[in-house]
Amino acid sequence: MTQAAALSVEGLGISLSGRQILKDVKFQVAPGEFCALIGANGSGKTTLLKAIVGLVKPDSGRITVDVDGSGGTSVGYVPQKISLDPHLPLRARDVVMLGLDGARLGLPLPSSARDARVEEMLQAVGAGDFAERRVGLLSGGQQQRILVAHALVRRPRLLLLDEPLASLDVRSVAEIVALLRRLSLQYGTAILLSAHDMNPLLPVMDRIVYLASCCAVSGKADEVVRTEVLSRLYGYHVDVVRVHGRVVVIAAHEPEEIRAALARDPVHTAEIP
């Protein structure tokens, strides 16, 4: 390793109300790297991210976030399933502004430097068109962009996103993924993004951290996204296939129960004209 890692997790163990959530988790994310955190529901993805932000105290192990001497928190964070209340009198712009100075005491004074930074970030996430609208009334994809801008406006070295793609439609998913890749290149921010499905991330991710109940595995994307490695992690056979120059992960065979159910009650696919 020639450069200090943006994030380094060593021997991390966390238990919440007596239940062991994470055990001996170890991985590193290099500066500017796009890293996917994959795991089934309940595998501890949210807890891991919260521990990195500092919302959950680890029982053992060490989390080191590279601070570039600018001081303050250098981690941006987009929590899971955050629903912005339509009754809040906040424009999209206000939420991004709070990303910059939301912890400061006292009333905000007018500042052109701050406004310029907020404006730049709004443009960077493509939110220029709805910056003045009430944030609770925006669509899910638009809110996601605003939350990304909120997290990025302080130029953190590391951006954490908890299931940002859940409950978005296919097109919004592709847009957000492309946006994140672009921002990470533009600002040199390392990204750690949790998801339960890795397919939308395959074109952009450099590294993958897989959380299973037994252990955490991490590696370069092209080392892990292989039929034999993934099949072992998932516990059933999956195929890594190349279609139209893209990589797709699919379950090669339906699990036993589904096959049995289909045999009993076959699916009739309608003809699409």
Binding site: P79, L84, L88, L98, G102, A103, R104, L105
Partner: peptide, 13 residues
Amino acid sequence: YRPLLLSAVSEDL
């Protein structure tokens, strides 16, 4: 003022 606004948006944030 500002922490109050932000925690009305989301306590996690």
